[in-house]
């Protein structure tokens, strides 16, 4: 049952990324490019996604997930090195290629092979992160 709902959620996510044009890197880079031919599509996608999500969060109060367990707790509002450094590095890569983790999976079937190079590098980066984080923790304090 958990797998069925996970597949359904993933399917909605993938269909949404495909239909919204967010697997088109020129739309993403066009949104980031405020000095070029600015493309506001991404703001509509973000806004459209936040509406049902906000309703869902409001619905979680005092309830439990349909399939058991509990809802994720609100994280400590701590703005540390990892959040700032990580988001900055992510933004640089996002700007360079116009791809982020969701769209690279959604465009697997029509990405033309070049996306596999990006995907392989992204997975390598993800695999390397625990090691990098431990190294950074030893040399630079986290806060």
């Amino acid at each position: 049952m958990r797998n069925l709902f996970a597949f359904l959620a993933g399917g909605l996510f993938g269909a949404g990324l495909y239909l919204s044009g967010m697997t088109d890197t020129s739309k993403v880079q066009g949104w980031l490019d405020i000095f070029g031919d600015w493309d506001p599509t991404l703001a509509f996608v973000m806004g459209g996604a936040i509406i049902p999500m906000a309703v869902a969060w409001a619905f979680t109060t005092g309830r439990r997930p349909l399939l058991g367990g509990s809802f994720p707790e609100r994280p400590e509002p701590r703005i540390g090195r990892n959040l700032v450094l990580g988001s900055t590095l992510f933004g640089m890569g996002w700007g360079l290629a116009g791809l982020c983790p969701g769209p690279v999976v959604a465009s697997l079937s029509y990405g033309g092979g070049r996306n596999l190079v990006f995907l392989a590098a992204m997975l390598a980066g993800m695999a390397a992160t625990p090691v990098l984080r431990r190294y950074l923790d030893r040399t630079v304090p986290a806060q």
């Binding site: 992204m122 980066g125 992160t129």
Partner: peptide
């Protein structure tokens, strides 16, 4: 770009 996205998202 792939490396930056992989490392950045996992750090953040």
């Amino acid at each position: 770009a792939g490396l930056l996205v992989g490392i950045g998202t996992r750090f953040a």
